[in-house]
Design a protein around this nucleic acid. Structure first.
Lengths: 219, 219
DNA sequence: GGCCTTTTGTCAACCAAATGTCATATATTT
DNA sequence: AAATATATGACATTTGGTTGACAAAAGGCC
């Protein structure tokens, strides 16, 4: 039924009856959104979302949960588990489409794939390349992810724990201090051009990317 | 019953039957508010609030106490223990919701993360940065917390003890005079621009942040 | 598969900033 | 002037961040 709502609107729809099929489809295609029924045979949709969200955020599409239970406690659980939104059956096609559009806009590739540039430091997610004054530099995967996170969330202090969640993904348990090491590696790469000043230590909190920090804080 | 009052209003509700469950829920979720019944099995709600408020204020949601005892002495105790408000059973849904809204508004993240500015002195909790006439200054964590507390509670005298509670958290026992030292350090940082006049000594009581005191300062 | 290179996470040593306390100086009140 | 309260400078300690080294893991290449 949902297929017949969405396909006329030019969405491409894939269907999976169970978690295994879902994993296969997800591996083979590049979806903008997952619509998930509360219960999947053999495994609850809830667990499946948790599994998905183990991966770093960008690698997995956003999830809308469909449920028949009007019970609100489930709604809480659904959102806590990592679903991005929640639609209760029965729903109107209009409502469903509205939610879908909202979630996709929030999480769109357009946002993710935008080229970001701050005074000569430029990151191009499509080419997966970073340039410093037009001059390409080599970053390790972790360094790249960290820099991309910072450049897409500038002027905001993050704790090590938040950085780990956003860059490494909610799973992957690593020591908080590891963030320090990667920060240092990034800084070292940016030092020759002076762009390391962008990455600021916020003592007692964590780190902050401040691209307008041409003049350093003095007290 | 409370669940059925709140959920239609789009509040997400979690329930705990005892202190242990409550701790677990609090550790796993990020609540805006705690509604606590006077008695929890095995431990009084009163003690639990005290335990909660050991932590610095921002790390724990505000608490509304629910009680059947109309007894005023209990009410006083409840508030003294750190509860933010107090609702006596029986209560109307309207009253409960009103109190809840009030407390959440007072203590909301929006409030916590708001940029506050008084004649050139500006604190930005998101960036975790303080600027003086657009010019960033470096504060130590303690100085930052103290200033943020003052700027979000202006024109009000606080005793050293209150300041310690709110800024350091109810735990961490430190000498009252220590507040003086931190006040001094803050003042020193604000002196070049004259903003130290905002921090006023209230003899015999403590200190007060009075942002409109540029004129008053030179009487 | 086996070999080599790069990347990654952790650790411990090192360094610097921040903190709390005290003793002394200064101000205010009586 | 005495009594009380606050301001200030110095200091030892603690906390937190940086750094270089290293071993394990991952990835590329033949």
């Amino acid at each position: 039924m949902i297929r017949y709502i969405l396909e006329p609107l030019d969405y491409q729809v894939g269907e999976a009856d169970n978690a295994q099929d879902a994993r296969r489809l997800l591996a083979q295609n590049d979806y903008d959104l997952i619509l998930m029924d509360w219960m999947l045979p053999g495994r609850s949709g809830l667990d499946f979302v948790k599994e998905l969200k183990q991966k770093p955020r960008k690698q997995t599409p956003p999830v809308i949960m469909l449920t028949a239970r009007a019970d609100e406690s489930d709604k809480v659980q659904g959102l806590d588990s990592g679903a991005d939104d929640y639609v209760t059956k029965p729903f109107s096609p209009r409502e469903l489409v509205a939610r879908i559009k909202a979630v996709i806009r929030r999480n769109s590739d357009v946002e993710e794939e935008k080229i970001i540039e701050f005074s000569g430091l430029c990151i191009d997610p499509v080419r997966h390349q970073v340039t410093l004054m037009e001059h390409p530099i080599n970053l390790s995967p972790a360094e790249y992810n960290l820099l991309h996170f910072f450049m897409s969330h500038p002027d905001r202090a993050y704790t090590r724990s938040q950085i780990l969640d956003k860059v490494w993904g909610d799973s992957a348990y690593v020591e908080e201090r590891t963030v320090d090491v990667h920060i240092r590696r990034l800084r070292k790469l940016l030092t020759p051009s002076g762009h390391d000043a962008f990455i600021q230590t916020v003592r007692g909190v964590g780190y902050r990317f401040t691209p307008s920090s041409l003049e350093l804080a003095r007290n």
